[in-house]
C-alpha cells in the first residue's frame, strides 16, 4: 500500500537574526487511515514538521530540504492554485487555540460554508446545508442556531468542535492536529479526543497528531514518534513504546509523566534542558542529558536503527 504521507530526510532551518535548525533529518511515513502521534517538548520541532506539510512556514526565512509527499503529490513543488486546492482539500489542520483560528467577525456558518464552496463548489445555500451537516457530525447541539453564532459566543469545547467541522469541509485525506486539546479542560478534552478518533474512522482519514502529553497520544494514536531536538529519536506502536521504551529520552519522558511514580519519592527526572539548536546537531543531541551516554554519543550522530516490527530507535546503545 502506498503511504499517504512520506517524509524523507526533512531539514527545516529558519534564517534571520539568528539561525535555528528546527528539524534535522526527519523521515517518517503514514499509511492511509493510520494515526501517528508526534510527541515532544517545546522546541522539539513537532509543530514545525506539521506546518511544513501544509507549507505554512514563512517562505522567505525558511530553508526546507528533503522530500515530502502527501497522497502522491510533491508538497514542496506545489504552487499557487495547486497549493490552495491542497490545503483543505487533501490535507487540513486543526490548531490548539480555536479562538485564534476563526475570524471573529464572521459567523461559524459563513466560515464553514465558505470552505465548503471553495473545495466542493455549489451555491451558498447548498454549502450552508453541508455546514449544518458537518456541525451535526461533530455533535454540536442545536446546529441550526450555532451556524448563526459568532466564534466568541461558543464555549471552548464547542469552538474546537466547530474548527474540526471546518477542517473536514473539504473532505481531506489527511488531518493534521496541532495540540488540539491542550487548552481544554479535562472533561472536555476526553470528549474531543473520542470525537477525533471516531471521525478519523468515519472519514477514513490519516491523522498526524502533535502533542506533548503521552496520555493523550495513547488515547488516539496507533503509532507514536518521539521528537527531540528536531529529530525523531524513537518510533513504534503505542503498545511497544509505552511498555518497552528503548531510547533514554523516551524513558525519561514516561517517568516525567509520572507513569508508575511512587508518591513522595523523588522523580527520575532528566537533568538539564534541551539544546538551543543554533547549529545542526553533529552528535547525539540528547547525550549531555543522558545518564547512559558513552564516549561515542558525544562524537557522532546515531543512525536510525530498525529493530523490526516498525520499531526504529536513534541511539548508539540501541543499535549496539
Amino acid at each position: 500500500m502506498t503511504p499517504l504521507v512520506e517524509i524523507e530526510n526533512l531539514h527545516v532551518t529558519f534564517r534571520g537574526e539568528r539561525t535555528v535548525h528546527a528539524v534535522n533529518g526527519v523521515s517518517v511515513s503514514l499509511a492511509p487511515g493510520e494515526v501517528l502521534g508526534i510527541l515532544g517538548e517545546s522546541g522539539s520541532g513537532k509543530s514545525v514538521t506539521l506546518k511544513t506539510l501544509l507549507r505554512l512556514l514563512p517562505e522567505r526565512r525558511t530553508v526546507i530540504t528533503g522530500a515530502l509527499s502527501v497522497d502522491g503529490q510533491d508538497v514542496l513543488a506545489l504552487e499557487g492554485l495547486e497549493l490552495a486546492n491542497f490545503r483543505g482539500g487533501i490535507a487540513s489542520m486543526i490548531f490548539q487555540d480555536p479562538g485564534l483560528a476563526f475570524d471573529p467577525v464572521y459567523t461559524i456558518g459563513d466560515q464553514i460554508s465558505e470552505a465548503v464552496m471553495r473545495h466542493m463548489g455549489g451555491t451558498k445555500a447548498g454549502a450552508m446545508i453541508r455546514a449544518r451537516e458537518l456541525l451535526e457530525r461533530v455533535r454540536i447541539p442545536s446546529p441550526e442556531r450555532r451556524l448563526k453564532a459568532y466564534p466568541h459566543e461558543l464555549s471552548g469545547g464547542m469552538r474546537q468542535r466547530a474548527m474540526i467541522a471546518l477542517a473536514l469541509a473539504g473532505k481531506p485525506k489527511l488531518l493534521l492536529a496541532d495540540e488540539p486539546t491542550t487548552a481544554l479542560d479535562a472533561t472536555v478534552q476526553i470528549q474531543i479526543l473520542l470525537l477525533l478518533r471516531q471521525l478519523q474512522r468515519e472519514f477514513d482519514m490519516g491523522m498526524l497528531f502533535v502533542t506533548h502529553d503521552i496520555g493523550v497520544a495513547v488515547e488516539v494514536c496507533d503509532r507514536i514518534a518521539i521528537m527531540y531536538a528536531g529529530q525523531i529519536v524513537e518510533t513504534g506502536t503505542v503498545r511497544d513504546l509505552i511498555r518497552d521504551p528503548r531510547h533514554p529520552y523516551t524513558r525519561g519522558l514516561l517517568a516525567a509523566n509520572l507513569h508508575g511514580a511512587v508518591k513522595g519519592m523523588r522523580l527520575d527526572a532528566i537533568p538539564g534542558a534541551p539544546p538551543a539548536l543554533n547549529e545542526a546537531p553533529t552528535a547525539c543531541p540528547f547525550a549531555p542529558r543522558c545518564a547512559s551516554a558513552i564516549e561515542v554519543c558525544s562524537k557522532t550522530l546515531p543512525e536510525n536503527a530498525d529493530l523490526g516490527g516498525g520499531r526504529r530507535v536513534r541511539c548508539h546503545l540501541a543499535s549496539g
Partner: peptide
C-alpha cells in the same frame, strides 16, 4: 468520579470508550 475517569488512560489496551460527561463546565 467523572473528573478522574476523564484522565487519559495510559494503557493502549484499555482506552477510554465513553466520555464521562457531556458539554463544557
Amino acid at each position: 468520579r467523572a473528573l478522574l475517569a476523564a484522565m487519559p488512560s495510559m494503557d493502549p489496551d484499555r482506552r477510554t470508550e465513553e466520555a464521562p460527561l457531556a458539554g463544557d463546565p
